[in-house]
């Protein structure tokens, strides 16, 4: 006797219509229904930040949002960052250049958090970057590289 609703969402520019159980989280919807497994599900209680996506342009945790709540919304996931020809987003390129990822589990959430943050604050200080990623946990403890990548990406995006 599951409670179901039909939702319509735009993910990375593509429109999808699906019938979903109302208790399905947005993170599980993206991964299981749409096959967009770039969004990583870590703690599933809003602490680790791995599942961060953009909901109507704002960073949000997809593990504690229901898919039904995203009805009518625009979503961007990590798959939507690079250009269609494979050119990496400046933040992704900076992660590569500065060794901003090790195991890669936190990476999608980190990149979604940082891209949203840089869109609001184009020339952050190191302290501001650290505050911005305070809700994203990297268990490899690779924060140095992540912070360096964010600062470098900010500079490149300003120049672009």
């Amino acid at each position: 006797m599951s409670d179901r609703r039909t939702i319509e969402v735009t993910v990375n520019g593509v429109r999808h219509t699906r019938e979903v159980e109302t208790r399905l989280t947005l993170g599980d919807f993206l991964r299981h229904e749409l096959g967009l497994t770039g969004t990583h599900i870590g703690c599933e209680h809003g602490v680790c930040g791995a599942c961060t996506i953009h909901l109507d342009g704002a960073a949000a945790r997809s593990c504690i949002l229901f898919a039904v709540q995203a009805h009518g919304c625009e979503i961007t996931t990590v798959e939507g960052l690079a250009k269609s020809d494979g050119t990496l987003h400046a933040v992704q390129q900076a992660f590569r250049d500065h060794h901003g990822l090790q195991c890669g589990f936190c990476t999608p959430g980190m990149q979604m958090t940082i891209t949203a943050f840089l869109a609001e604050n184009s020339s952050p200080s190191e302290k501001e970057v650290r505050e911005a990623i305070s809700g994203n946990l990297c268990r490899c403890t690779g924060y140095q590289g992540i912070v360096a990548a964010a600062l470098d990406a900010a500079q490149k995006l300003r120049g672009a």
Binding site: A59, R61, S134
Partner: peptide, 12 residues
């Protein structure tokens, strides 16, 4: 508000 959670949680 700067001490309330993180940007992603304050967005919601």
């Amino acid at each position: 508000l700067h001490s309330v959670g993180h940007i992603a949680t304050r967005n919601r």
